[in-house]
Design a protein around this nucleic acid. Structure first.
Lengths: 207, 207
DNA sequence: TTTTATTGATTGAACGTTCAATAAAAAAAT
DNA sequence: ATTTTTTTATTGAACGTTCAATCAATAAAA
């Protein structure tokens, strides 16, 4: 079987297998053997390509964060108008991208989040991502409200997004992405309404 | 050392030691030996009083949920007025009780939450607690808004509370409980304002 | 003397990592 | 074209470690 140029293929296989294994039995029982079996390779190959289990887990988390940021920036670059509402809306939409919220990636993300409390490397990755989200939100809010208000709006919306995400990952039925987006957008409307911004044309209900 | 009636004392010691160990090194590395050392006893005693490590972890999660519910219902019974706003406010305050949000209990709670995804017993405990919070919020909201709105308000506020909680447990500095309460209360005000309720006398800022 | 509480060495299972062996593909030599 | 050599990719058994659970031994209290 050995051909040249297997490395990128195996890396992708193993990262996907890691998410599948964590989705299946959780991080604690996602052993190298189980992950390798998912990818259809032997256990030893993990150390060969990732230096060890920790390297594979780190690479998997990087992949998830990369995908998430990609989903967000794609939507932001596709915007027609440059209003803060549009940008923040795109951030919300990106966070609730179907590929992110459904399936193995969501549970893997939550598992890593919890694990990052005591693993410095994961914590670092988490922090960088958190700060980017906060900074982006803050920058947009500051264009329509004072700085102190913008900071609180950014923190509130970030908490709302995470809360919806986490509840979605935990409910056995999985996240109702539409409802989550609805709640986040309405919260955004409420935050902006206090500063004289018009709500969107559609979806002006109260909840 | 052996005296009669040690059981309740040891159980409490070991549950507290479990939280301390999880706070220190995380659930994955909270071994029975480390927990026992924290409590100043030997490892074997855990199986004696809890039937095994799983029994101790389950008892610890029960304790945390009991404490949380206690903090909430104490505040609700101490209310002077019976308005929905007051009750929901008490639920918020209870959730951000200092003893809950600070220290070992918060990180232990988050660790269990993540772990509950793949451990049926923990998931059951989590579900019961979640449903109680949602039911209580829903019941209060329904007194001032239509049922569909109340359901969404309850889900939104529950997500907000969890999001603030989780972000607090993960930030190295710990949760700023005052800011979290502030954000949650203002979100509550916004939810109620749409249905003709007056905001609280104080704290009518926008964020 | 009997009961209750506790210890800690031992056991067996499970884990991540390592590495010599293997096999296929690619390159070089004939 | 065929054969030989080299390189690359992969395996899986062996190793050392770590963990939870067990239980005979022990010691204090009743």
């Amino acid at each position: 079987m050995p051909k040249v140029g297997m490395e990128p293929i195996r890396r992708e296989q193993l990262i996907n297998a890691t998410m599948a294994a964590i989705d299946e039995v959780g991080l604690a029982e996602a052993t190298v053997m189980r992950i390798a079996r998912h990818a259809g390779v032997s256990a030893g190959i993990i150390s060969h390509y990732f230096g060890g289990k920790d390297g594979l887990l780190e690479a998997t988390m990087r992949q998830i964060l990369t995908d998430l940021n990609h989903a967000i920036s794609m939507r932001r670059h596709a915007l027609e108008d440059n209003t803060p509402r549009a940008h923040i809306g795109a951030i919300i939409e990106g966070n609730f991208d179907r590929t992110q919220v459904t399936g193995p990636a969501a549970k893997t993300w939550l598992a890593f989040w919890a694990s990052s409390m005591h693993k410095p490397m994961l914590q670092r990755l988490q922090n960088v991502n958190d700060r980017r989200l906060y900074t982006n939100l803050c920058h947009q809010f500051r264009q329509v409200m004072p700085r102190a208000d913008a900071r609180n709006a950014a923190r509130g919306l970030a908490a709302m997004i995470d809360g919806l995400w986490l509840r979605g990952a935990l409910t056995p039925e999985g996240l109702d992405a539409d409802e989550a987006r609805h709640l986040a957008h309405n919260y955004l409307d409420q935050l902006l309404a206090y500063h004289g911004c018009q709500p969107r044309a559609s979806m002006t209900e109260t909840y």
